[in-house]
Design a protein around this nucleic acid. Sequence first.
DNA 1: TAGGCGTGTTAAGCCCGCGTGAAGATCAGC
DNA 2: GCTGATCTTCACGCGGGCTTAACACGCCTA
Lengths: 224, 224
Amino acid sequence: MTKVLVIDDEEPILRALRINLTARKYEVSTAADGASGLAAMARDRPDVLILDLGLPDMDGTEVIRGVRGWTSTPIIVLSAWGQEVAKVAALDAGADDYVTKPFGMNELLARLRAAVRRATPGADEPVLTTPDFTVDLAAKRVIRGDGDVRLTPTEWSLLEILVRNENRLVTQKQLLREVWGPQYQTEANYLRVHVAHLRRKLEPDPSQPRYLLTEPGMGYRFSC
Amino acid sequence: MTKVLVIDDEEPILRALRINLTARKYEVSTAADGASGLAAMARDRPDVLILDLGLPDMDGTEVIRGVRGWTSTPIIVLSAWGQEVAKVAALDAGADDYVTKPFGMNELLARLRAAVRRATPGADEPVLTTPDFTVDLAAKRVIRGDGDVRLTPTEWSLLEILVRNENRLVTQKQLLREVWGPQYQTEANYLRVHVAHLRRKLEPDPSQPRYLLTEPGMGYRFSC
DNA sequence: TAGGCGTGTTAAGCCCGCGTGAAGATCAGC
DNA sequence: GCTGATCTTCACGCGGGCTTAACACGCCTA
């Protein structure tokens, strides 16, 4: 679960972010000024920082410098419309991206995902949890409610690729190439059969997939 | 400092461009015909090329092909009013955009900026955000307000090409060739149908497109 | 004003891709 | 060599995306 720290002094924005991010399965903590923000940063060790530039006690760039002194955690800056200079200064100080207020929640979420993805290049999330099951990539185990789920080798490599590309579309060709080898790139049949098996073992309702989604004509996507 | 090469045989235009572009802090060099233009291109290595189609010694598309042989430097074409055929040919040959003479200096400058921005290395941002939706090229996802937008394979490849060429005019031929293959270059019907579908799914008001713009007689342009 | 051209829109039919079940082939462990 | 598990292969039904054609509309020209 990705941890997000939001430093902002405007209560409505804090509330909106808390609601939306929590709904998106982020773990959210907040701070209302720079000083307590820096403290929370050290205490909570979040995976991303969302920072408003207009704080009451200190300049945004100071906060960034305070953070950048000891960690490279991605920082996304919120700036009011017209704060171009401050925006540039923030990026210079080490911010990763910025969003201009008023912002669309989807835009922010997209940038958040991008920032997190960039920050974890090869560092795999070893375990992924959904409301229905947990995939432990390191231990090669899937736990679902009552107990372990037995997966065959093919099923496992399929699932592993999809999970590692969570929320991203993976092409049929890509899957076939990585699981069976380059010469099997046309055998879409294999995919259908084994994806069906996976759904039977993982999905609450295999006929209405919630996690292993198929994108007609393109491929599959693991969503959580 | 951005370097611009202008290839044009009309002295008044050359002069106007030299004055205006220099005032805008561009570094300007000029050539009066195709042959010396190609030479200057190799010698000066400009960041953008402004090319008049009505050169005395060789056809404009020949110049473009000569340039495209070894560099992807953006090319903006100047065409006289009525040279529709030459314009389309130039774009198909690899030009990035066109401006019709007589042109407003502001329009040219805007297109110039767009062309340079598109060409700068950091431009391969995998996610593009507009006020109404977000296109994530890597994840092959489009998010719009309430949630994901479902796109069919054809719709997606169309959108992908247009987004990768944001602010740049893409000819019908180009689109048809890249989505359906070289033998479909005349089936403009397909384009109309599928662009209509895209607009229905993406535009706030599909009858008044804001992002998927059509350039009558030439092609389409994704604008943000 | 009529006609042509390019474009947008809609609907209908065809065909391909997907899911499913089951049977045959292959392999590992004993 | 036997047995069970796993993978491959095939046939079938179905839904949806692509194609295709017909029509409406605006713009330009004769």
